[in-house]
């Protein structure tokens, strides 16, 4: 099963920073699926899902940015109330700490994908699969 990888970029809260990142990616013909910013007081972390994480990592690092590549959980949200709550419940029951989560919508609001950052990714995968939660693979993300 191919992993879903997320690109993180360390950024002070400078308005030009996101543009700098997106410029570098577009110049390298890398498509962005989702982008979100986790913010501290004076700095933030820009998180991205892209179609070629390896290439994006290299391109950003070459330009001198502080960048990291992490595996994340990508979960297809069912169009039912309580879907998000159920997943959080499963993770909490198993003492898996969610560092950050964000959602994005593909294809004009028809499918919602939840991206979850956890420390123990292996364990998280196991418990979710055990509860028959469908985890997306990298190729799924871009075929949706």
């Amino acid at each position: 099963m191919s992993k879903v990888q997320q690109i993180s970029v360390f950024a002070q809260n400078k308005p030009g920073k996101i543009k700098r990142v997106t410029d570098i990616l577009s110049r390298n013909s890398i498509n962005i699926r989702a982008i979100t910013i986790a913010s501290g007081d004076e700095y933030g972390v820009i998180k991205l899902l892209v179609d070629d994480p390896g290439k994006a990592y290299q391109a950003l690092a070459e330009k001198g940015l502080s960048v990291a590549l992490n595996e994340v959980l990508a979960i297809k949200m069912e169009d039912k109330p309580g879907g998000l709550h159920r997943i959080m419940e499963i993770l909490a029951e198993n003492n898996i700490n969610v560092e950050d989560a964000y959602g994005f919508v593909i294809k004009s609001g028809k499918i919602a994908v939840l991206v979850v950052n956890v420390k123990d990714i292996k364990k998280a995968k196991e418990v979710l699969l055990f509860k028959r939660i469908h985890l997306l693979e990298e190729k799924d993300l871009y075929q949706l």
Partner: peptide, 18 residues
């Protein structure tokens, strides 16, 4: 200034260092 190789994408680690 923090070292590039320390950055692992986790804002929690940044906060804890701070």
């Amino acid at each position: 200034e923090i070292k590039k190789r320390f950055f692992d994408g986790s804002i929690e680690h940044l906060r804890s260092l701070q």
